[in-house]
Design a binder for these strands. Structure first.
Lengths: 331, 331
DNA sequence: TCTACTTGTTGGAGCGCTCTAATCCTGTTC
DNA sequence: GAACAGGATTAGAGCGCTCCAACAAGTAGA
């Protein structure tokens, strides 16, 4: 497994190591004749540049570190798609990591990412404390996605959860609903703005808000609905705004188990527009975050800092949109 | 962003750079007194080692490169969990990449991974041609997950798809089904063994196999069922073995749209036991691959080669198991 | 007391590359 | 024919680290 180095390529092509370096970096000041010779030699030897040595010598790197909090949630995949597309356009690559939504492991993952000296770091829905983020931001440009921060050294990209649940409420009200319950995301990331957005929208329509404490899982959603059924008896709400899609799915199955039909008896709106919601079998009305766009903005923010074009923090708050499918109808 | 180096730590602690290096690598031959001084100095300066420089100097690395073919599919997340757990136990870390299930991008991703000179490489469900895999395997130990290979330089970890669909058929037969159709995965990875396993199991039970060409998506599953409904008219099969969970979900919704109830009128079995299948709303009977175990075995295979313990290829074929939920019943 | 180890520490070479400054070429101009 | 311009090429230092050989400073054995 002893791989050829620049020196080997140089020797074979009959030029200096420095010239090979120029060719590899695509420098314009190399004669066509030599360039061809070098590329041929590299090809014959099966040479591929050593990213580490390169970034060590140049004191810069051409990749962005991405920590995905949870690989199990496809929500992040599209954010990564956006990051990847933007990075790629600017000649950067992505190096991904995961912390499994647990602070100690995320810390390690972050340190590991940092040890590669990436040009910048994107944290997708991290759960580590702000202090860890601040420390990391001192080492490399850093952007947070789906997590807000007041740190002046970090950029953030979020969807406007407040507006998002407002859209859900507006939609239900326009269908004629007045008894609308919110099953919330508890302490989960972005659960708070979604909750306050729901409450504000209800007040705006002159309706009485009711929030049921829950979590971002289908099990929690089902549990919340069972509590609701018990508390309300036969006088059920006509609509539910769930914390996210998983929660909504759980809520729907609990309703169905109790003989309550969706959307005939009760309408349900999710949040996130995960691929799950799009499945025909589920066909969930939900709030969509422009994830690809969020990824792109995150990469862009990072690259601006990398290029030293900006030192002031930027706070992107993207406008979500409502995707109407089959789980909502007139009461 | 000028980060401290070993030299800085050494100066502050009043020792040589080499000693700092020993401390950082946890060498036992350092006096407690010096070790403490070095660690204190490192902490005060906020020093963290430079992974690149380290691996450049040592000509070894302590991380495994992982190319995930599709980040959108949570199927891989658990494989990564297994890889991660095993790697971590042996002092290795994971560096992840994605190729988006498209050969050209996967090629790039592979080259990029290789340029970091990882100790080994795991390819999860890659779509690149065998030649690209062979070339990569010449550069670093390589293991394939969910893809078979005849190359003597690569290890493979797969589930036994043949046995898997056999389990599905056995289950349906034991419930009393005899008219069982297979909606297959077309040219998708591992679709062939699942198909042949289905056919073999049907023959074993003295039943006539019927395969409908399809793909690994819910849309394709729905389409296949609509074709089936058209072709069979009122004489429907009593059970369906789908190519995977997505396909099964699509099939179920197409059945329901046509007024065919699952499992009352027709039973459906999926494959992969994705988190989707476990959702109460879906509750799909499906074939489970021991994914965590597969990830662990992949990491183990890699580490054996890294340590030079083995040069002959290993072929893991794991036994899947059936998870019975609510989409199957007696005909 | 001398030698042989052991334990802890250090200088220096070198990993594969980049980057600066210097050098080598042409060809052009006076 | 000398002087020069400007592009193509190269030597050499150095990025932050590891690793080896060498070296003090004890400790034990003869």
């Amino acid at each position: 497994m002893d791989r050829p180095t620049m020196e080997d390529v140089a020797a074979r092509a009959g030029v200096s190591r420095a010239l090979v370096s120029l060719v590899m970096r695509g420098s314009p000041k190399v004669s066509e004749h030599r360039r061809a010779a070098v590329l041929r030699a590299a090809d014959e030897l099966g040479y591929s540049p050593h990213a580490m040595a390169r970034s060590l010598a140049s004191r810069t790197s051409h990749f962005l570190g991405v920590m995905v909090s949870d690989l199990h949630n496809a929500f992040w995949a599209e954010i990564v798609d956006g990051l990847d597309a933007c990075a790629r356009e600017h000649g950067f690559e992505l190096v991904i990591n995961t912390g499994g939504r647990r602070a100690p492991r995320e810390r390690q993952a972050l340190a590991s990412l940092l040890s590669f000296r990436p040009a910048g770091i994107a944290l997708l829905g991290p759960v580590v404390p702000a202090s860890a983020i601040e420390a990391a931001a001192a080492q490399a440009p850093l952007v947070l996605v789906s997590r807000s921060s007041r740190l002046s050294t970090v950029d953030t990209v979020n969807d406007d959860g407040q507006t998002g649940s407002g859209l859900a409420v507006d939609h239900l009200v326009s269908l004629g609903h007045t008894d609308i319950v919110h099953i919330d995301g508890g302490g989960g990331s972005q659960a708070a703005p979604r909750r306050t957005g729901y409450v504000a929208a209800m007040r705006r329509h002159g309706l009485r808000p009711q929030v049921i404490r829950s979590e971002y899982t289908d099990v929690a959603g089902a549990k919340a609905v069972r509590e609701l059924l018990e508390a309300r008896g036969s006088h059920l709400p006509t609509a539910v705004v769930a914390a996210n899609d998983f929660n909504a799915i759980g809520a729907i199955s609990a309703f169905e188990e109790a003989g309550v039909r969706v959307p005939a008896d009760v309408s349900v709106v999710g949040y996130d527009n995960t691929s799950l919601a799009a499945l025909r079998h589920v066909s969930l009305t939900t709030v969509d975050q422009p994830r690809i766009e969020m990824g792109r903005l995150a990469a862009e923010a990072l690259l601006q800092r990398v290029r030293g074009e900006r030192t002031t923090p930027v706070r992107h708050l993207l406008r979500p949109s409502l995707i109407v499918r089959s789980t909502t109808a007139a009461p």
